[in-house]
Design a protein around this nucleic acid. Structure first.
Lengths: 102, 102
DNA sequence: CCAGTTAGTTCAATAGTTCCGAACTATGAA
DNA sequence: TTCATAGTTCGGAACTATTGAACTAACTGG
């Protein structure tokens, strides 16, 4: 479970980053992680969707360089790679989060 | 050809807007329209893709409230709905365009 | 007016992606 | 060891995207 792949941010295209953010469930996940880092799956509050779907959403966010996942016992801890993402796409995540519906 | 449908910006979700922007061809189209308004299809420079695909990309951008299309003879004129889009999602388009690869 | 050309849409087929239940893996607790 | 929990993987169903071909409509030259 613990061999997570995290891309270099230089390898992430703008279109790929936007694609990862272009989903209501993933937007919620990112917003939650922006507020309180280091959550596990259940902690993202997106648990109306099935586990397998969530797992896939996490993979999409990882592949877009938005989050980093670590195994912690049988949980998975996730954090936003905010500094790196902001360095790669300045202002983008801020404006996306600011425009998210409350 | 000329019965284009343009949504109210209040009906456009953030996820839908991001989805429309999450494609390299559409990003090019939007960037081109941001630079020189009122282009037709051929003028967007995205002509490596076939006509039917382009036509579809224009529809996606229209449905996301990003562009307005008008028939002009046998051409189609398109402009960014920048003021309206910016009012709906402040700063979003700016940060996307600023992060586009040159 | 007519034939040809050009800009764009629509249709249908195919290719690719996403979703989600079921089965599986791995960790931890009793 | 046995049970429960957290998450992944697999595979099929549902959805989305891409594109050639056929079509529509408007302009152009004779």
């Amino acid at each position: 479970m613990s061999d997570f792949v995290h891309p270099r941010l230089t390898d992430v295209s703008l279109a790929a980053a936007l694609h990862a953010l272009a989903d209501p469930v993933r937007l919620d996940m990112v917003a939650t992680l922006a507020g309180s880092p280091d959550l596990n799956c259940a902690g993202t509050g997106a648990c109306s969707v099935p586990k397998s779907t969530l797992s896939n959403h996490f993979k999409v966010l990882r592949n877009a360089g938005l989050i980093e996942s670590r195994a912690d016992g049988r949980d998975q801890r996730n954090r936003l790679r905010r500094a790196e993402f902001d360095a790669r796409f300045p202002g983008l995540l801020d404006s996306v989060l600011a425009n998210r519906p409350a």
